[in-house]
Design a protein around this nucleic acid. Structure first.
Length: 712
DNA sequence: GAGCACTGC
């Protein structure tokens, strides 16, 4: 710790912090900013008037950095130094340096908007621009006005956007702290390669044959490409004559890789160190490792021994389109911040080399400075509800001061969603329901479902569904297209797993969890049924947390098993589906008269299909239900509804009526459009910007609805 | 009849 670069700047840092409410710290990898900034301020007495909070975008980082700091200060973790992450709070009354995830700090500010317990708040890794950090930055700007005399805010960022952050905070000072990276020699291709898999393959083999020892880290976009490149590399390496060059080990590295897979190839030792988690034991002697990874190796995992980096220049990014309500997963060019982060991975242990598979001109002219922040790529219903629930008199959501503002369309999309599920009223004011919803660590649709379920006496089932939906990829992990036998198995699942009784995927998730509960949460049962163990355990944690929050207002028992109950399951399912309908009021779809295609019934109509993985059942005539709610719209080869549940038309009508009343100008507080059309108050169908065709559409839907009703 | 970058409350 003695030779960490940041310690040479201790006086300068203290002087700047003493004189300014906000300071931006540019600190590269290895500067020690994550572990030292808090200690420097602690030493100079800032913890006398309150604690120091240091936020991290990732849980592992919060845990490992706090552990390190406790070690350096020679205190027990949880005493003077502690951490708080979801499901785990290791702090005490004595804690004066507290590491936490940005999400946890946001939760804390819900009960204490001025965050009075802290004298210093450090937002670490702000350049990653996580949704939560962005919101925190906006809140900090307001907080330093309110607490000018007794709050210091430090924000750490990357070289390329430090200026921007400084400007945001009224040109606050920027301090540069050098890192401890070794020099990395960067080279470019002369042209954009046609196939970056082929191009990576050639470059990797070229390094292997011509360059001295040192592992190679190759950044690809996803599992598919990684698997392709891995097998090509292995093939190529096997074709070399024995002894012509050093041994090689090719390792895939991506998020959906089960832990035991990693174990079988490389005996992983998960040793935490600094803010990083180190994977893999050192390679055998005279053996070069080829690690083919997604951007998980950019920040979340550090592989020791990497000397060469091959950067494809691309990354897969999930984006939300507020005009269609649809998500898509696109391959996009990385940003310059990301490119530099990737290059830096080559210089951690000694001087390295980074091969960018794109021309220098592309780096300069085409790449964005920084990655498009998450806040501009996500549905904002949850964040808007959060900000509304803070009930800050001086904050207007549409004018909230974001470092990068989301589009007006995106904010209005969020407001409409919230209105349809009763979280805000027609004037955009948060309702009591909305207030309760904001206390739940769930997306608004599921939070609303829980509240409705409490009224219909099926809260315990709704808790389970919400917990299961909080996990992604609970069912059948990974695809094994290598073996044909498993493909056949998939068509006729050998498992005994329930099928949702035909009602849809939510009910299936409930039934699976209830079965698991009956096995006393057996790990083997999960494995036997091809359920991802990690995911199931996560669902159990979430369910427990949600139960604790709902306990206060729960009308019945929240046990998974309700032994005293005699009622039939269909009745439970019906209530549950009814609750889901209220929660997913902005995620409704109506089937076409003649075929099994659907049209979404929100303010923006889309033609969509039920995802083929759904267990939703067709009737005797091969038709799917007339009305469904969906958890998510995802655009891949087509527009699909993922996780679908049948609802009944009489539940849908009131929602359609509410849709007609929807007036986005009023929801926005009317402040951005002073000339309001007063006709809207009288419920007269009208034209209204992006929602203009919705009235006639809804009218048509109601006509069809009435026709159906008449036919029955 | 199809396919999953990465986080997080």
């Amino acid at each position: 710790m003695a030779n960490l670069p940041i310690l040479q700047f201790e006086d300068k840092i203290l002087e700047t912090v003493n004189q300014n409410p906000v300071v931006v710290i540019i600190g590269e990898t290895g500067s020690g900013k994550s572990t030292q900034l808090s200690q420097i301020l602690h030493r100079s007495g800032y913890t006398k008037s309150g604690a120091i909070a240091v936020t991290q975008p990732r849980r592992v980082a919060a845990v490992s950095v706090s552990r390190r700091v406790a070690q350096e200060l020679d205190v027990r973790l949880g005493d003077e130094v502690g951490y708080a992450i979801r499901f785990e709070d290791r702090t005490s009354e004595r804690t004066c340096i507290k590491y936490l995830t940005d999400g946890v700090l946001l939760r804390e500010s819900l009960s204490d908007p001025e965050l009075k317990q802290y004298s210093v708040i450090i937002l670490d890794e702000a350049h990653e621009r996580s949704l939560n950090t962005d919101i925190l930055m906006g809140l900090m700007k307001r907080l330093i006005r309110l607490r000018a005399s007794n709050l210091k805010v430090l924000i750490t960022s990357a070289t390329l956007d430090g200026e921007k952050v400084s400007k945001f905070f009224s040109d606050c000072p920027i301090l540069n702290v050098p890192g401890k990276l070794y020099p990395v020699e960067i080279s470019y291709t002369s042209e954009q390669p046609k196939s970056y898999i082929e191009s990576s393959l050639r470059k990797a083999i070229d390094i292997h044959v011509n360059e001295p020892e040192g592992d190679i880290l190759i950044f690809m976009t996803g599992q598919d490409d990684i698997e392709k490149l891995v097998s090509k590399l292995e093939e190529k390496i096997q074709s070399f004559e024995v002894g012509s060059c050093m041994d090689a080990l090719v390792l895939p590295l991506h998020g959906s890789l089960p832990p035991e897979m990693q174990a079988s190839c490389c005996f992983p030792l998960f040793v935490t160190c600094g803010s990083y988690v180190r994977v893999f034991s050192p390679p055998p002697p005279n053996c070069r490792r080829f690690i083919v990874a997604t951007n998980i190796a950019e920040t979340s995992l550090t592989v020791d021994g990497v000397v060469y980096v091959i950067d494809s220049g691309y990354v897969k990014q999930r984006q939300y389109n507020p005009s269609t309500g649809m998500y898509s997963l696109d391959v996009v060019q990385i940003s310059r911040v990301q490119a530099n982060q990737r290059a830096g991975r080559a210089g951690r242990t000694r001087p390295g080399k980074c091969y960018r598979l794109y021309p220098l001109a592309v780096y300069h002219d085409n790449l964005l400075d920084a990655t498009v922040p998450e806040i501009q790529r996500s549905s904002l219903a949850g964040s808007v509800l959060y900000l509304k629930s803070l009930d800050l008199p001086d904050i207007d959501i549409l004018k909230f001061d974001f470092l990068d503002s989301p589009s007006l369309e995106s904010l209005q999309d969020a407001l409409k969603q919230l209105f349809l599920i009763d979280a805000i009223d027609e004037n955009g004011t948060i309702t009591r329901i909305g207030k309760t919803m904001s206390e739940l660590p769930l997306e608004p649709s599921l939070a609303r479902t829980l509240i409705e379920a409490n009224e219909y006496d099926c809260l315990t089932q709704a808790l389970t569904v919400a917990a299961m939906l909080s996990v992604e990829g609970t069912l059948l992990p990974g695809r094994s297209k290598s073996s044909k036998s498993t493909e056949k198995k998939r068509k006729h699942p050998p498992s005994e797993l329930p099928d949702g009784s035909g009602w849809g995927d939510h009910i299936q998730l409930l039934q699976i969890y209830e079965l698991w509960d009956q096995t006393d949460y057996s790990i083997d049962w999960c494995k036997d049924n091809n359920l991802q163990v990690r995911g199931m355990l996560f669902a159990k944690d979430v369910r427990k947390q949600l139960s604790q929050i709902m306990q206060k207002i729960a009308k019945g028992s929240l046990d998974v098993r309700r032994k005293e109950r005699r009622r039939d399951r269909e009745h439970d399912y019906k209530n549950l589906r009814k609750s889901l309908c209220a929660g997913y009021a902005s995620q409704l779809a109506e089937r076409s008269i003649r075929h099994n295609g659907y049209k979404t019934l929100g303010f923006k109509s889309q033609l969509v299909q039920v995802h083929p993985s759904s267990v939703l059942r067709e009737d005797e005539e091969g038709m799917l239900p007339n009305y469904v709610v969906y958890h998510e719209l995802i655009s891949t080869s087509r527009a699909f509804m993922r996780n679908v549940c049948e609802v009944e038309m009489q539940w849908v009508t009131p929602i359609l009526q509410k849709l007609e009343k929807l007036n986005v100008n009023k929801l926005s507080g009317g402040s951005n459009q002073p000339m309001e059309n007063t006709q809207e108050d009288q419920n007269i169908p009208k034209k209204d910007g992006p929602t203009d065709d919705s009235s006639s559409r809804i009218q048509a839907a109601r006509d069809r609805f009435l026709a159906r009703k008449a036919n029955k």
